[in-house]
Design a protein around this nucleic acid. Structure first.
Length: 137
DNA sequence: GCCAACGTTGGC
DNA sequence: GCCAACGTTGGC
């Protein structure tokens, strides 16, 4: 299975990186957007994802890995949406801010910039590697 | 706090 | 099936 790379957004007031670091794994619940949901369906156990703080912070703070494939989201009564489980992997030494991403020519195609409301998105390996470098991971 | 972008809902 | 109205996200 090919390793894939993702970015997950969370508002720190809802679920922060500090909270994520304190659990062994956590279901990524609350996604109510079909495009984001479909990306989660494509995730495989072992895929890696950046953890991005939206609204407050506006920066990538660390890395999580997918530890359970797509399954129903208990918080969704409609039954239309599901989630994956993610476990913390590592904190960035230096968080990578939205501003830095905007200023980096190689990152202009990221959905983070082009589709600001999308909360789950894929990244290319090139984008992944560059951001890891910027975060001094 | 405002507003742009965009997804969803519901009337027709 | 179209589109206006409305709600939500998230950057500023």
């Amino acid at each position: 299975m090919i390793q894939k790379y993702w970015l997950l957004k969370s508002e720190p007031s809802t679920w922060s990186w500090e909270e994520q670091l304190q659990v062994s794994s956590e279901p990524w619940t609350g996604v109510r957007n079909y495009q984001a949901r479909n990306f989660m369906k494509e995730m495989n156990v072992g895929d890696l994802a950046f953890f991005y703080h939206s609204n407050i912070g506006k920066e990538i703070v660390g890395i999580v890995k997918i530890v359970a494939p797509y399954h129903p989201d208990d918080t969704d009564d409609s039954g239309k949406f599901g989630c994956v489980d993610v476990a913390p992997v590592s904190s960035f030494k230096t968080p990578v801010t939205l501003n830095q991403i905007k200023k980096t020519p190689a990152l202009q195609d990221m959905a983070l910039l082009r589709q600001s409301r999308l909360s789950v998105m894929p990244l290319t390996k090139e984008e992944w590697d560059l951001i890891c470098k910027m975060g001094e991971y």
